[in-house]
Every structure is written in C-alpha cells, then in structure tokens.
C-alpha cells in the first residue's frame, strides 16, 4: 500500500513538471497558432542558466531567478526576431524553423558550457526526505516541485480568469482575428505571452536542475512527452494541459512501476521485465492515440 502511495506521488510530481512545460507550449500553440519545437530548448536554457549562476554565486534563489529571467528573455528575443515572422505561415514552416533553432541552441550550449553535464546542489533547506505518514518517506525537493507546480497552476488560473491580460488570452484563444480587429496591440501581447511561456519552461528547467543532469539535449527528451500532454488535454487549453499532464504523469509512472509485476504472472522474470519496459514506454502514446480516436480535439479543447 505504501508503495502504491509513493508511486502515485511520483506520478503527480512528474505531472507537475510536465504541466509547467505544457502550459507554456499550449498557450503559444493555442493563441498564436505556432508549433514551437524549440520549447524544449527554453527548458534547457533555464536549467543551464540556473546551474551556472548557482555555481558562481552559491545561492539557489538567485540562480532560480536567473534561470527564469534568462529563459523569459531569450524567449522574447526569439519571438521578436523569428517567431513573429512565422505567424502567418503554415505549420510546416514553423516546424522547420524551430527545428533549426533546436540545432542552434544545442550546439551553442556545447560551445559555451562544453559537453559535460553540469552539477547543481540541492539547496540545504530542501535536502533530505521526510516521513509523510505510515512508512512513506518522500524527498523534500520533490514535494517542493509539487508545491511550485501547484502555485504556478493557481497563479495561471488567476492570471487568466481575473486579469486584463488573461481576458485577452481567453479572447485570443477563442478568436484570434477578432481580438486583432478590436484594436488590441496583438504584437505586444504575443511577445509578452511568448515570454511567459518561455519563463514557465525555464521554471521547469530550474526545478529539474538539481535532480536531473543538466546537459545538452535534455530539452528534446521531454519535448515529445510535452506534446503528448498538450494534445491529450486539448490544444490551447491551460486547464486541459493540467489534466493531461496529471494523466500522463500518473499513467507513465504506474505502468513503469507495476507492469513488470503483471507480466511476471504470465512469463519468466527477465523476459517479462524487458517486455514490460518496452510496453510501458509505448503506454502514453497508446493513451494519446486512444484519446484522439475518441475525442479528436482532446479532452478539454479550448475552442470548438
């Protein structure tokens, strides 16, 4: 039982990481109609900026701030110089251009930081693990990730539901052309929004820094999974991204944790483990295909 609870917590924690990435991606996807393959690069940039500053200053908080701001700033520059020219193009051009950006950012990071992964220490106040209840121990840092994800989700909800910016975001998701026709400075809105999405990706990178290895190519590893989340949740919907992220996080974790045992009932140990590992890797993609077949626009589509 305690194993089940711990695995569920792991699933939720993965879900929150995915949510941070997916929220930014879905906003950009839904409102500007841009497929940004380079979203993973922003995650990587956030992590690298954070790792570098943390090693120079020794302060986790300053480093976290630096990671957020760097990702946000680079996101806005990217929007201003490149993405802006792609709004009117079809998805194909966007895919190609942002793929080019991935190549560039990855290799630039190699030039700046080398190929060896960077190391970030977990800050002292988040180290260790605590006893939650019964015999369930859980690392403090992972609880912090869940908390940060939860705060971001609430913050985003308030931003979208209660502020003028949020109103524009909702209007933009529902009918982009109408917002433009009503005289809103859509260019500025887009730049700000892109920066916000980039910052969310940067935040995910910052949170990931101390537990994963900060290395070139880390962005692409999560990018595809993030796309799965966005599509399952419904393109353009932040609520959908939240639901999708939780589902993907929990399903992926549970399959990895419990599928081998299920397979062991049917066949010999080593074969079962290897086969189950393969099937659990396919799991989220099967889930996505299933969701799209039943609800072609995703679970909670933003419009229509």
């Amino acid at each position: 039982m305690s194993l089940l609870i711990e695995q569920a917590l792991n699933g939720v924690q993965l879900g929150f990481m995915l949510f941070l990435l997916a929220a930014g991606l879905t906003l950009i996807f839904g409102i500007m109609g841009v497929i940004n393959l380079a979203h993973g690069s922003l995650y990587m940039i956030g992590a690298f900026a954070m790792a570098w500053v943390a090693n120079v200053t020794g302060s986790f908080l300053i480093a976290a701030l630096a990671g957020l701001l760097t990702a946000g700033a680079i996101g806005m520059l990217m929007e201003y110089f490149i993405i802006r020219k792609l709004y009117t193009r079809d998805h194909l051009d966007q895919v190609l251009a942002t793929f080019g950006l991935i190549l560039f950012f990855n290799q630039l990071t190699v030039l700046l930081f080398g190929r060896q992964p960077l190391f970030v220490q977990i800050p002292g106040f988040l180290e260790g693990s605590i006893l939650l209840f019964g015999d369930v121990r859980y690392p403090v840092y992972r609880i912090a990730i869940i908390a940060a994800g939860l705060l971001t989700a609430i913050g985003l909800y308030l931003l979208i539901a209660r502020t003028r910016l949020g109103m524009l975001i909702r209007a933009g998701a529902a009918n982009r052309d109408m917002v433009r026709a009503l005289g809103v400075d859509i260019r500025l809105l887009y730049t700000v929004l892109f920066g916000l999405g980039a910052m969310l990706a940067g935040l995910a990178g910052v949170m990931a820094g101390p537990i994963l290895s900060v290395q070139v190519g880390m962005g692409e590893q999560v990018l595809i999974l993030t796309f799965v989340v966005v599509v399952i949740g419904g393109v353009g919907s932040v609520r959908g991204a939240f639901v999708g992220a939780m589902i993907v996080g929990v399903v992926d974790t549970m399959l990895r944790a419990f599928l081998p045992q299920a397979f062991r009932q049917l066949m010999a140990g080593p074969d079962a483990d290897a086969l189950a590992a393969g099937f659990s890797a396919m799991g989220v993609y099967m889930l996505m295909a299933f969701v799209l077949l039943v609800k072609p626009k995703g679970l909670l589509p933003a419009h229509g």
Binding site: L3, E6, Q7, N10, G11, Q13, L14, M17, R137, R142, A208, I211, L212, S213, M218, Q221, V222, T253, R256, A257, P260, G269, P270, D273, A274, A276, A277, A281
Partner: peptide, 22 residues
Amino acid sequence: LGEIYTRLDQTDFAPEMAQVRA
C-alpha cells in the same frame, strides 16, 4: 530479488527508487 529495466531516454528514476526501497 528483481531486475528493473529503465529507458535510455529516461530522466526521472523516482518509480524505480520506490521499487528498490520496497
């Protein structure tokens, strides 16, 4: 006691840690 196969593109080993502990 157990053989656990991970993925080559895996970044988070939390579920495996829980299995080891158990």
